[in-house]
Structures are given as structure tokens and as C-alpha cells.
Design a protein around this nucleic acid. Structure first.
Length: 639
RNA sequence: GCUGGUAUAGCAUAACAGGAAGUGCACUCGAUUUGUAAUCGAGAGAUUAUCGGUUCGAAUCCGAUUACCAGCUCCA
């Protein structure tokens, strides 16, 4: 008998050789039906694989990421089986599960695959799934494995075998298809009920552009048809919300070929939105003791040689600007921190001055690879809501709390309800990779961990993900469609104070080196706004939206009253527009709805006479007639 | 940056297979003065991304450039 420990700590005894699926059956039939694979002592195994010794076990289903991975990886095998059936002689590279589904890299010889071929492949996959074949695991000797793929003529699998040693090689078979694979797999193909091939593209063998280009087919599968439908609807919705599309439709921003790739141009409405975001953050920062500064867009090359950025990125970024003066070179600033370090250094500091919090909406320029540019989310010129906090090691935790509080406020105010964070710590195995004393690192890491606990922030910890200059914390939010985005960061930096030789005089009358915190709650205005546009589908929170209402007169006769109403609302700091076209009211309503302006104030004869407005809310409809003052009061309750 | 695809008026698109660049929305003008998601009519708007080539003839075929899209690689 062996002891099986469950995730809740319960221990139960089973016969040695029992499989996870057997164990699941002993718990409940329903669970057994849903088990895709199992985590055995931290390793993901086939649910059918015998367990011979005491183990910690968690059963994995569709609700676990690892369960999904198993499902999708098995789906990749099933797709391979279908491809082999339809295109005999296909050679196979690798076929892993990815975030949403799976792909398989294949070599079809001269054949070119297009989306028109998808239907027949999908049909074949479903046909094979319905054969209800088991996925069978076989341990195999290297010699036998090589013999098998030599016979089959698959040089890619042979190359993969090259890197493996005897004893760790396994084959998996379902139906007629055998693949070299570490596993694990789902018990049977019947679980795969719905398949959609998403796209086909090229990918180099082993990601090496000097090697052969293979055909990569992406697909996704589900245990229920309904889930596939829901997924496709989600993609459809995401397409509708694409910030590039909405940004053009709502006239928020544009790009121009003449201005240059990756250089966003903010139009009046987008800029109004941007301004309101910045005003909000400025006010909150002021409350928290930040000092606002402005620094130039360029700086002498020496500045970035000192900061170390030139050495690391100089060659790959915008090249130096030359002046009439021989040898003089300036760089577009890729970061605000060197300028801020100079601000710190311009006068001596006492420990009593610290922490010093220097903030700037600083526009920076980075030469991103052309293929990387994407709407507002990846650009070559962008504005960071940047700040640098210079403090002592003992103040780190307090400052972290201050920043965490601010960032959480920003996220909730923007309507992001699910905020988590990743704490990136040093790799304990490799202490020499990092600058700064061990003692300070420990202090800083402890400060981050404790601070996140105190503000009750859900975190994951990533060892070895810290920058060489300090540990960091990245915020992630989930948007309205359930997609995760990385937003602002907080980074501790021991490097720049060193390079700029920053000092303060301590209580002991000795010079000490301050520590620096970089932080940006939004990250960059551009990227943040791309996420906000998609999160809200262009229906921005009332306090942010560039046009808060539209006054729609029923006929030209009431345009004067419309102006009166507009002025009255302006006094309440509520801003909007008047649609005074000679159009029918239905038309004005339709156009305003499409512009996603939150309130429509419809005025006709009745309203003029009684000095009222008929209020209609975007997406909701008629809200009844009220006085302008009552509307203003109602509006304010919604802010 | 690499691989593949795309580029027609402000936007969305049509033009069989190389043979007169069309439509809808937006815009301008006129009529209409409208009560909760599109009033009617007229007009104007194009060097078919740019440059070069093939051809009697190019939006259409070829090459280069630029931009965009997807994927790969990257991200201080």
C-alpha cells in the first residue's frame, strides 16, 4: 500500500500501481470523467500512469492551467495524426501547447497549406477523436527510437533524439500515430469534442532563421462545443474593441507615414482623455509628496554613457544627433532617470531631505524593431508617468507602501477590478549577477514582500527575474474580457545611484549612497490608454470621457436653449457638445450613440417651455425629463 | 530585424481572366423643422501608397521602396 496526499492535506492509502484516474474514480465518478492529467509530486503525469510510491497528488481538469495544457498538447498529437492521414509523408517538428491552444510545426515538402485546407483537417481531427483511442505511453530505448524515425524518414525527430539520453525517451501512440514525446497526455481522444484551426504561418526549425522554414499550424480545442463557440465570440468581441480600430473611429489618435512609424499623434479627443488621466495622477502624486519636474527630450551622449544605457542600447536605438560643433553628440532620451539623477545631484542632501520623490510625465524615444510596433501598445515615442524616489534603505518599505497604495488607487479608479502583482527576486544560486550588497538586497526584497502583504495585494513570486540592479514588482490587471495585461512597475535600483555617485549626509555626518525606486503606475500613457480603450470598449468612465454629453435639439428652433443648457452645465464643470444639424432626432440619437457619448440631452418645445431636459443614457435609453440642475446633480452622483 | 500577406476618395468597399475607376457612409449645397438608433434630392471628391519596368493598353503582371496586418525574434 502507498500513501497518497491530497491538496487539502488528507492522506489516503491505495494499492501500489494505482493510477490517478483510479483514485479519481474512488472519489467520484464525475471527477474521474473530468480528469485530464495529474500532478504527482509536482510533476504533471498521465492520469493513467501507475503510481508506485507514496506521492502528493492533485488531479487536473479543464479548470487547471496544467490540465488545459495536457488537453491541448494531446490535441496537437491528434492534429498530427490527421495531417499524416491527409498528407502522407509529412514530417513533424514540435507541437506544444500554448497560451490559447497549441501548434504543430510540420514539413510538408513543397506543399503550401492555406486556410482553405482547414475544414478538411478539422473534420479529420473530429473523425479521429470519435474513434476514442487511448493515448498510450511507451518507454523506448534510444536505438529503437532512432530506428523508428529513420524508417519513417523524419529528420526533425531524429535531431530531437540527438539531445536525449537512453532511459528518458518515451513514445506516445494514439490510433495509428506514434510520436516522440515526453508527455503527459489525456487518457483518450474522445475528450476532444471541438476543434478550430486558427491560422497557418511559417516558423523556422528551432527558431533559427538560418534553418529550414516549417509550416506552423495553430489550433485550439475544447471539451465542449459550447466552449469553442464562446471562445470564438470572445475573439470577435476583442476584434471589435481593438484600440486601433476604436482609436480611429472615435478620433482619439492617429499615425502618419510622414511623421514616422510608431509615433502616435494625439487628436483633440484623445488628448483630452490623456490630459484628464495625467491631471488625476498629478493630483494624487501631489498628495503623496511628489515634486513635479520637467526635463529636456535630449541629453548629451555622456549622460547615457554615465548611466550605462548607451553601452547597452546605443547601437540598437535612435542614433546620436550631431550639431555644427565637431564631436558634439546628443541622444533622444530613452529614460528619464539619468536626468532625474542629475536633479538629485545638483545640491547636497541631508538624510532629513529623504525621501525625495521626483515625478515627470517624461516623453522618451526608443527604436523598437519595426515588426514589434503595434498601435499604441508598442511605439517608438511615448510618455511615461515616471517618478524616481531617492531614499535610504530603511525607508524602502514605507515608500513601497506609498507607491502600492497609489497604484492600487489608480487601477480601481480606472475600473480594473482584478489586480495582481509579480515580485521579481534575485536568483539565489547566482548572487554574483547582481550589483549592490547582499544585505541591501535582502532588505529590499523583504520590504517588497512585506509591503505587498500589508496592502493585501495578491502576488506571485518569480525567482531570478529581478534586474541586475534591483528587485522589482510588476502589476497585472485583467480586463473586461478576462485578458491579462502588465501595467505599471516598481523597481529598486542600486546601480544608478552608484554610477552617478549620488550621496546624502547621514545622522552620523558621513556620506551614504541613497537607493532609488523607479515607478510608473500607468507604465506609459500610450500603452495604458490602449488597454483602457479595449477594457471599456470606448465607453470611458464618466470623469474621463472627452465629451460627457451631447445636446440634441429636436429642431433648429431650440438651438438657443441648447446653448443655454450647455453654459449652465459648464458651470458645473460638465463638458459636452451640441448637435445643431437640421436632422431628425432619430438621426441625432443614432450618431451620438455610435460616438459613445454617455448622455444625450434632448430638448424640444416641452423642455424649452418648462426649462427641462429629456435625458437619455448611452446604451440604456430614456431616463426621463428633469431640470438642468437636477441633471447636474444626478451626473455628479455617477462620477 | 526575419517570413508571409495587404495597400483603390476621410472611412468601408467593387471592378470577370490586362481594355472607360464604380457604390455606400462621411463632406458641400438645396429642400425638409423633425420627439428617442439612418428624411429626400443634387454636387464635389481618385496621379488606384511611392518609384521604376513589361505591354498598343496596367488598379490588375514584374522589381524596389514605404506603411499596415499576422507570426517569429526582441523590449532600458
Amino acid at each position: 500500500m502507498i500513501n497518497i496526499t491530497f491538496p487539502d492535506g488528507n492522506v489516503k492509502q491505495y494499492e501500489a500501481g494505482v493510477s490517478s484516474i483510479d483514485i479519481a474514480k474512488s472519489i467520484s465518478h464525475g471527477l474521474a470523467k473530468n480528469v485530464l492529467s495529474a500532478k504527482v509530486n509536482g510533476e504533471v503525469w498521465d492520469a493513467t500512469r501507475p503510481i508506485e510510491e507514496d506521492a502528493a497528488l492533485s488531479l487536473l481538469t479543464w479548470n487547471d492551467d496544467d490540465g488545459k495544457n495536457t488537453f491541448w498538447h494531446s490535441s496537437a498529437h491528434l492534429m498530427a495524426e490527421a495531417l499524416e492521414a491527409i498528407y502522407p509523408g509529412t514530417k513533424f517538428g514540435i507541437g506544444p501547447a500554448i497560451e490559447n491552444g497549441f501548434y504543430y510545426d510540420i514539413d510538408l515538402g513543397d506543399r503550401v497549406l492555406s486556410t482553405e485546407d482547414f475544414k478538411k483537417i478539422e473534420d479529420k481531427i473530429i473523425e479521429l477523436a470519435r474513434q476514442k483511442n487511448d493515448f498510450e505511453r511507451k518507454e523506448i530505448s534510444k536505438a529503437d527510437a532512432i530506428a523508428y524515425f529513420e524508417e519513417k524518414g523524419d529528420e526533425y525527430k531524429l535531431e530531437l533524439l540527438d539531445g536525449l539520453t537512453d532511459g528518458e525517451i518515451t513514445f506516445y501512440q494514439q490510433g495509428n500515430f506514434v510520436d516522440l514525446c515526453r508527455g503527459p497526455h489525456i487518457p483518450n481522444t474522445e475528450k476532444i469534442k471541438a476543434i478550430k484551426l486558427m491560422k497557418v504561418g511559417g516558423a523556422y526549425w528551432r527558431g533559427d532563421e538560418k534553418r529550414k522554414q516549417l509550416t506552423r499550424i495553430y489550433g485550439i480545442t475544447f471539451p465542449k462545443q459550447k466552449e469553442l463557440t464562446a471562445y470564438l465570440e470572445l475573439l470577435e468581441e476583442a476584434k471589435k474593441r481593438d484600440h486601433r480600430k476604436l482609436g480611429a473611429e472615435l478620433e482619439l489618435f492617429m499615425f502618419s507615414d510622414r511623421v514616422g512609424q510608431g509615433l502616435p499623434i494625439w487628436l483633440p479627443k484623445g488628448n483630452a482623455l490623456r490630459d484628464r488621466l495625467m491631471a488625476f495622477l498629478k493630483e494624487e502624486q501631489e498628495k503623496r509628496g511628489y515634486k513635479l519636474v520637467t526635463t529636456p527630450h535630449i541629453g548629451k551622449k555622456d549622460l547615457y554613457v554615465t548611466s550605462g544605457h548607451y553601452e547597452k542600447y546605443g547601437e540598437d536605438s535612435f542614433q546620436p544627433i550631431h550639431t555644427p560643433r565637431e564631436g558634439e553628440e546628443f541622444l533622444l532620451k530613452p529614460m528619464n532617470c539619468p536626468h532625474h539623477c542629475e536633479i538629485y545631484a545638483h545640491k547636497p542632501h541631508s538624510y532629513k531631505d529623504l525621501p525625495l520623490r521626483i515625478a515627470e510625465f517624461g516623453t522618451v524615444y526608443r527604436y523598437e524593431q519595426s515588426g514589434e510596433l503595434h498601435g499604441l501598445s508598442r511605439v517608438r515615442g511615448f510618455t511615461q508617468d515616471d517618478a524616481h524616489i531617492f531614499c535610504t534603505n530603511d525607508q524602502l518599505k514605507e515608500e513601497f507602501l506609498n507607491v502600492l497604495d497609489l497604484t492600487k488607487l489608480v487601477m480601481t479608479k480606472m475600473g480594473f477590478e482584478q489586480v495582481t502583482a509579480q515580485i521579481s527576486l534575485r536568483d539565489p544560486e547566482n548572487p554574483s549577477k547582481y550589483i549592490g550588497s547582499l544585505e541591501n538586497w535582502e532588505k529590499a526584497e523583504r520590504a517588497i514582500i512585506e509591503a505587498t502583504k500589508e496592502v493585501d495585494l495578491e502576488t506571485v513570486t518569480a525567482l531570478g527575474e529581478a534586474a541586475f540592479y534591483g528587485p522589482k514588482l510588476d502589476f497585472m490587471v485583467k480586463d473586461a474580457l478576462g485578458r491579462s495585461w502588465q501595467l505599471g512597475t516598481i523597481q529598486v535600483d542600486y546601480n544608478l545611484p552608484e554610477r552617478f555617485e549620488l550621496e546624502y549626509i547621514g545622522a552620523d555626518n558621513q556620506a551614504h549612497r541613497p537607493v532609488m525606486i523607479h515607478r510608473a503606475p500607468f507604465g506609459s500613457m500610450e500603452r495604458f490608454m490602449s488597454i483602457l480603450i479595449e477594457h471599456t470598449a470606448g465607453k470611458f468612465p464618466l470623469w474621463l470621457t472627452p465629451e460627457q454629453f451631447a445636446i440634441l435639439p429636436i429642431s433648429d428652433k431650440f438651438n438657443d436653449y441648447a446653448e443655454e443648457v450647455e453654459k449652465a452645465l459648464a458651470k458645473h464643470d460638465i463638458k459636452g457638445v451640441i448637435d445643431n444639424r437640421s436632422e431628425k432626432i432619430g438621426r441625432k440619437i443614432r450618431d451620438t450613440e455610435l460616438k459613445k457619448i454617455p448622455f444625450m440631452l434632448i430638448i424640444g418645445e416641452k423642455e424649452v417651455e418648462s426649462k427641462m431636459v429629456a435625458v437619455r443614457k448611452q446604451g440604456e435609453g430614456d431616463k426621463g425629463v428633469m431640470s438642468v440642475e437636477d441633471f447636474a446633480a444626478y451626473f455628479k452622483t455617477l462620477l
